[in-house]
Amino acid sequence: MSRRRLLLLAALALVSLGTTARAAEAGPTEVRLDWATYNPSSLVLKRFGWLEEDLGKDGIKVTWLYSAGSNKANEAISSGSADLASTAGAAALLARTNGVPLKTVYVFSKPEWTALVVPKDSPLTSVAQLKGKKIAATRGTDPFFFLLRALKEAGLKQSDVEIVNLQHSDGRLALERGNVDAWAGLDPHMAAAELRSGARLLHRNIDFNTYGTLNAREDFLQKYPATVRRVLAQYSRAADWIRKHPDEAVALLAEAGKIDVDVARRQLLERTQFPDGYDFKPVSVALQTVVPILLSEKLVASDADPSKALSELFLERPSGTFLPVGSR
């Protein structure tokens, strides 16, 4: 065969290979997602390896990163260290308003995971009495937003109190050591504080909790929508399992989160629900009330538009199929 014909054949072969590749989605080589003690489904997935099993069939590696809070999860997405990360709904909105390119793709829980906590023998009885006091909170997380909204309700501003920035577990320590007067707590640390040191919940409001949302980085979502779909399918499976096996779920949470069983029980069975993960409507409604706080407490840049960010936050789902916004 002449040299030229050989080259032509080779070129044809390559082209045909290319077209076949374009027909199916070229999956990623790796999916990086987070696990956290405030995201029980992630712990289930990590324990049973369902994601590795499913994605491994196509040679996709699964890497798990630990998130100590919504703030860390947002950072992971922003810096590109994670493709999917779990935060509170309000934290996802904050991130998107500030320019982080993420989209909420799933609601992994409806929790009451935050409240204002005071030590056992605290004389405080109302939020209004927090004026001038020291409160521990992790900025950029649901407890932080909860705190601000509770203060606003009581007629106080951020500047009326001293908010000490401490990550969730350090906040609990500070409360128990008496370094702060109150703490915007988060489960499981909050449950642990209640059960171990007798800490009291000064103020609760289930409506001020903004759901547990799983977010994907926009470019990852655009490139690999099918892969994201597969992750969410496993998430649904995990939620289902938790609903059907509550006691085993508590044991799993206790072991994976390194917390005591009674703490895990309070967090999971008393304070967490697992609704339809694809139903964003209630989250959107809850976040409407967060928008004004973002602006009034200057959590976003002065020219940012949280409303616009909210309108773009969720993955659109036209009748069952799963497509990123903008592609038809």
């Binding site: 703030n71 947002n74 950072e75 904050l94 991130a95 500030n98 900025r139 950029g140 920035n165």
Partner: peptide, 11 residues
Amino acid sequence: LIDGQNSARAD
């Protein structure tokens, strides 16, 4: 620094 980090405010 850490506030910017926590709130996704690089500015």
